[in-house]
């Protein structure tokens, strides 16, 4: 396989993200590990969204719903484990858990299960309608989370002890970063495989020309639904990790601003690019971090930065550095 210019940049981005926490250890700046972990987790969520948005052209403005659901899966399981209360007694007894693999699987399963009906209804619409109906579903879940008192409502839910992973000490920031980073790389690998698979090809073809795909006997609806569900599942996994990073989950993870932020990450990095979400997350977290430290009017300058990027740097960061792809 030939490594093109984009491939080189991808490797640089991946190495750069991996290098931050190690540099932090050398410089004794623990916080940069936290920052890098945040980048990796947001990137993972955005890679998830990229399955729907980048490959399928499905602009979901409601992915915060799945991100937040994953977070709540982690928060709720951990709380029940912490308090040693079973989650459910009947018909089967379900206990809480503070084991990351269990939490991850639950987050993935819940997000996928919720995404299935949401996708099934939303995918009947197209264009702006799709953007808005996904937003509507996310808002529903958001308001539900705020007004449902059992798990903290608007106050959210604290996770007092970071959940564990067999054989490693997750309390060590570097270890936790490596867990998140590994999952990110796995997701990127899945994305690359998926993109070049027949399934992925059909999805991309459906984005470009729906009638032609339908004509060769592939149902675009089913393919899109599958992509939407996979996309939600990965976002849910990222949400579970995010909850563990913050030791906390709250309805603001479900807010429309969060959905917007995930979209921003993808566009910043480069829509449809394999490493677009990673580059986007790194840039966004860094800009937010530095501007926030410099001025209390950071949101103004964040807005200006985003505006300049969208107006003058088409194709995002990777598009800028690697040049246009063939089909653009």
């Amino acid at each position: 396989m030939e490594i093109g210019r984009e491939g080189v940049i991808n490797i640089v981005v991946a190495v750069a993200l991996l290098a931050i926490p190690f540099a932090a250890v050398v410089l004794d700046e623990t916080f940069y590990i936290t920052l890098a972990t945040r980048m990796a987790i947001l990137a993972l969520a955005a890679v998830g969204l990229n399955f729907a948005l980048g490959l399928g052209g499905l602009v979901s403005f409601g992915h915060a719903a799945f991100f937040g659901l994953g977070g709540y899966a982690a928060g709720i399981l951990a709380t029940h484990a912490f308090n040693a209360e079973p989650l459910l007694l009947w018909p089967i007894e379900i206990l809480g858990s503070n084991s990351m693999p269990v939490i991850w699987l639950t987050a993935i399963a819940i997000s996928a299960l919720v995404a299935l009906p949401i996708g099934a209804i939303s995918l009947r619409t197209t264009g702006v309608y799709f953007i808005m109906i996904t937003l509507a579903f996310a808002q529903m879940i958001y308001y539900f989370a705020i007004s449902w008192p059992a798990y903290g409502g608007e106050d959210g839910l604290s996770i007092y002890v970071r959940n564990g992973f067999p054989g490693v000490n997750t309390l060590n920031p570097l270890t936790f970063f490596l867990i998140c980073y590994t999952l990110l790389i796995v997701a990127l690998f899945l994305f690359a495989v998926f993109k070049d698979s027949r399934f992925g090809a059909a999805l991309q073809a459906a984005r470009q020309n729906e009638t032609r795909v339908a004509a060769v006997g592939i149902a675009p609806y089913r393919i899109r639904l599958a992509a939407f569900v996979i996309s939600a599942a990965i976002a849910g996994l990222a949400g579970a990790l995010f909850a563990d990073l913050n030791r906390f989950v709250s309805p603001s993870m479900l807010s429309w601003q969060m959905s917007g932020e995930l979209i921003i990450l993808i566009i910043l990095g480069g829509t449809g690019r394999l490493f677009g979400p990673v580059a986007g997350a790194m840039i966004f977290v860094l800009v937010e971090y530095f501007l926030g430290g410099i001025t209390e009017r950071w949101q103004f300058f964040l807005g200006l930065t985003l505006l300049v990027v969208v107006l003058f740097a088409r194709g995002g960061f990777i598009g800028l550095v690697a040049g246009r792809t063939r089909h653009e």
């Binding site: 948005l53 953007i131 566009i267 949101q299 103004f300 200006l304």
Partner: peptide
């Protein structure tokens, strides 16, 4: 495409809100 429009006008919200507060 709609994606760029969403991002650019989202950026405008930040600018207008903070500008008004300024």
């Amino acid at each position: 495409d709609h994606l760029d429009q969403v991002l650019a006008t989202f950026a405008l919200i930040l600018i207008f809100s903070e500008g008004t507060r300024w």
